[in-house]
Design a protein around this nucleic acid. Sequence first.
DNA 1: GGATTTATGGAGCGATGACACCAAAAAAAA
DNA 2: TTTTTTTTGGTGTCATCGCTCCATAAATCC
Lengths: 214, 214
Amino acid sequence: MTPKKIDGERRGRGRPPSFDRGQALRAAMRLFWDRGYDGTSFDDLIAAMGISASSFYNAFGSKEALYQEAIDAYIKVAGGWFSAALNEETDTRTTFGHLTAAAAAEFTRDDLPAGCMIAVAATQCAPTQARLRDLLASQRTQSEDAMVDRLRRGMAAGDLPADTDIEALAAFYGSLLRGMAVQARDGASRERLLEIARIGMQAWPAAQPHPRDS
Amino acid sequence: MTPKKIDGERRGRGRPPSFDRGQALRAAMRLFWDRGYDGTSFDDLIAAMGISASSFYNAFGSKEALYQEAIDAYIKVAGGWFSAALNEETDTRTTFGHLTAAAAAEFTRDDLPAGCMIAVAATQCAPTQARLRDLLASQRTQSEDAMVDRLRRGMAAGDLPADTDIEALAAFYGSLLRGMAVQARDGASRERLLEIARIGMQAWPAAQPHPRDS
DNA sequence: GGATTTATGGAGCGATGACACCAAAAAAAA
DNA sequence: TTTTTTTTGGTGTCATCGCTCCATAAATCC
């Protein structure tokens, strides 16, 4: 057929791809997001991406490689609002209030699958998929580390009691976000998720009247 | 026919099974718990259960039927500590403190797989597995309903502020428990989970000094 | 002891999964 | 134009998946 427009600059010698790689990747991301790795078959993928098996392997290498790219693409989407919220120029409590509220909103968009692509992915899988499991667990750890960093800065700024367990607090909000992602996938409304987020903020550590208490 | 099938006594006419059905079911439960439905293959199952393919179909019907039985078996395990904690004879706040602490302990037992078999299962799956997805989502709803019931009783007993949003509070603790289950699967220690649970209890609604405040 | 009923071992089945190969096609580079 | 490089369509492969069939073994009932 007639060659179509390709994104960005088309440099290279051979025949140009007839499809938009980024667009195909986003289609794959949506499918993986919605159905998970196992739940998305090869045929599902090439159908949704609108390409043939040959083009698939030529452009993406393998299903697993595509999944990793899809994860990266998701990070660009979700990492956007996530780190945007974390790097706001406000006090730490407000930051986390906005972060959890943003999650409630993002987990219930009508133009994207519900929930989070990473939050609960590959927690139960075959031993042969240990690599994927570790990859996803590592991503979860990374987002929690980002929260730890923000809390540490907040601690330094005096936003938190001196005896706050930073790691535990980050783990708490990490757990909450993942649970919210499950709720979203089960069909919870945005309002419900916002309520959960609001309650979660009630757990924010109060200033200690007796800081030298062990 | 004169069906005198009593589960305890083995009264049947034909050849008796050479394996313990309950034991085989528990082996399957562990495997499903650890690897999920897709991650557990037929061959994995019959190997772990120590039976042949014929015996498998003779005794359990199909992989999906076995999974449902495994879920039921899990409910008997986890439903044990869950409703035990919920039906304690204490005030509502203490009850939920014990519930979350019990989850932290149960999610990190060394004689069982980490986390919860139901908490995050089948949230991402193929359309062909809609039945399983709905089954699991329904189980999650049920456990949340049990928390709603307990909170309602607590409200009636005066343990909670009159303006408490019961459903939202139950959804919050439901989210927290599911997030804790993910943490457990990612390798979090029991102490870490207990910390998360403790922080989660800080979100418990305080008595409102100004209930007519919007 | 038959007769009946149920379980077992073993072999194999159709479908699907992910992927590989290759010759033709379409572009830039020479 | 010729050469070189890359994509594409079509077909084939090989393993695994969940499952089935059948002859036989082992129990109970008459």
